[in-house]
Design a binder for these strands. Sequence first.
DNA 1: TTGATAAATTATACCGGTATAATTATAATG
DNA 2: CATTATAATTATACCGGTATAATTTATCAA
Lengths: 235, 235
Amino acid sequence: MLKYQQIANEIQQDIEKNDLPQGTKLPVLETLMSQYKTSKSTVIKALSLLERKGLVYQVRGSGIFVRRRNRKGYISFSNQGFSDELSGFDISAKVLELDIRKPSAEVAFNLKIDPEDDVYYVKRIRYINGQILCLEESYYNKDIVTYLNNEIATGSIFDYISNALGAKIGFSDMYVHIQKLNEDEALHLGLLVGDPKLFVETIFYLNNGLPFDFSRISYNYEQSQFFFQSTGYSL
Amino acid sequence: MLKYQQIANEIQQDIEKNDLPQGTKLPVLETLMSQYKTSKSTVIKALSLLERKGLVYQVRGSGIFVRRRNRKGYISFSNQGFSDELSGFDISAKVLELDIRKPSAEVAFNLKIDPEDDVYYVKRIRYINGQILCLEESYYNKDIVTYLNNEIATGSIFDYISNALGAKIGFSDMYVHIQKLNEDEALHLGLLVGDPKLFVETIFYLNNGLPFDFSRISYNYEQSQFFFQSTGYSL
DNA sequence: TTGATAAATTATACCGGTATAATTATAATG
DNA sequence: CATTATAATTATACCGGTATAATTTATCAA
C-alpha cells in the first residue's frame, strides 16, 4: 500500500478508535511529519485524501479538524469508491435472473459496445440487515466480466471483479430520479404500486475508463437513508 | 485566483468549448507544463481538481482523458461546492415566511448553538425553469448571517452570504430520504398527499468549520433528476 | 478593559527534482 | 503472423525546499 494511503488509514483509525468529536484539532503538519517519518508533501496528500473522504477539514493558518460523523443507520453515499459504502451493514442478495444476452440499444450505448456483443444480465434483490434494500438489474460487458454464476451474484459482484478477475474499478456516473413504483417493482420490494422509489441508473468504469457495468436500481424507500458529504474546492 | 485553479478553468473551458467527446486524450503533462508555463506539481494539482470535478480521469502510464458529460436536464449534484450546481437552469424563489426566532432543540444541536440564540427562519418555494423544484425550510445562525430580508431570500442566499457578508462557504453534510408528501408539502408543491418526495436535511458549514445553515428540503419528484459522479481513490 | 498592532503559528501554493509503476510502442523470436 | 521480450512513454509517489496567506496569539496603547 502507498505511504500516503497508509498514513491516511492510520489517522482515520486514530479518529475512529478514540472517537474524536467534531472540531478536535489534529497534530500540526510538523508533528505528523516526524510522527510518520515522512515528508510534508506526503502528509498533505494523506490529509487531502481524508478531506475528500469527509473525515477532516483543513483551515489555513489554524489547523486540521475532525468532521462530523455519520448518523446511525444511514448508508454512506461515498464519492470515492464503493468498498466501504456498506460497512457496518449486513448485506446479502437473492438472484432472480442471470443469463447471457444481447444488449438493447440503450444498454449497448451506455456500455460503449456493439449490440451484437454479449452481456451478462443479472436481476437480483439486495437485502440490508434482513430487510429489502433494492431491486437491481445489471448488465456487464462480457469481454471484461468474462464469467458470472449464481453463487457469485449472491455475494458482492464487485468484490469478485476486483479480486478474482483482477480488474480495477475506477469511477461511476449516476443518474438519480424519484419516481413511483410500477407493479413488478412493488411486487419484488414488498410495497404498493405508486409508492415512492429512488431510481438510479449507474455506469461503472474501470480505472482505465472502460465501462463494464450498467445498472438500474430501485430502492425501497423504507430502507433508504443516505449520508452524503460535500467538500470544498480547496484540495 | 490561484494558478492551478486558473489552469483547471482553462482546461475545462477548452473541453467544453471544443466539446471534446468522452475518451479524448489531453496533452501530456510535459506539454501542459510548457503550455501554461508552470511546474509539474501545479499542472498535477489542476488536473486533480478537474478529476474531482468529474471532468477527466487519469490513467497512469497512458494519459489524461475526458470524461462523459452530463445528460441534458439533470441537476449536477456536485461534491465540491454549490456555485455551479444549477448553472444552465433558470432559478428563482418565492418567500413564504421569514422571521427571527429561537431554534428548536434539534435545530440548535445541528447549528451548534444555544437554544436562546437567534436564528433566521426562511421558508420558500424554489423554481427551476418556471416549475416548482422544491419546498425549503432553512435556519441560519444569526451570529453569522447577521441580516436577511425578503428581497435577498428571493434570490440566492448563498451568493449574498459569500459576496455581501464575505463569509466563505466550506462544506456540507446531507441526510437524504425518500418519503411521501404530507398535506402541507403537497399543497405547496402542487402535488398530491402520498406522492413521492426526496427529503434532504443539510448542514452547511463555513470553511472554518462553523455551521451556519440547517435546511430541510422537499423536492418535487417531477422536477428532480440529479447527476452524480464518483471518482476513484487515486488523487 | 478594550481595541488596535505586531508577531508567531499554521496550512497552502508553487517549484523542481528523482524514483517508480503502469501502459503502450517497438523489436525480437519462433 | 502471432507471441514474447524489450524499450519508450507517461502519470504518480515521494522528497524537501521557499514563499505566501490566513489565523491565532502576544504586545502595546488608549
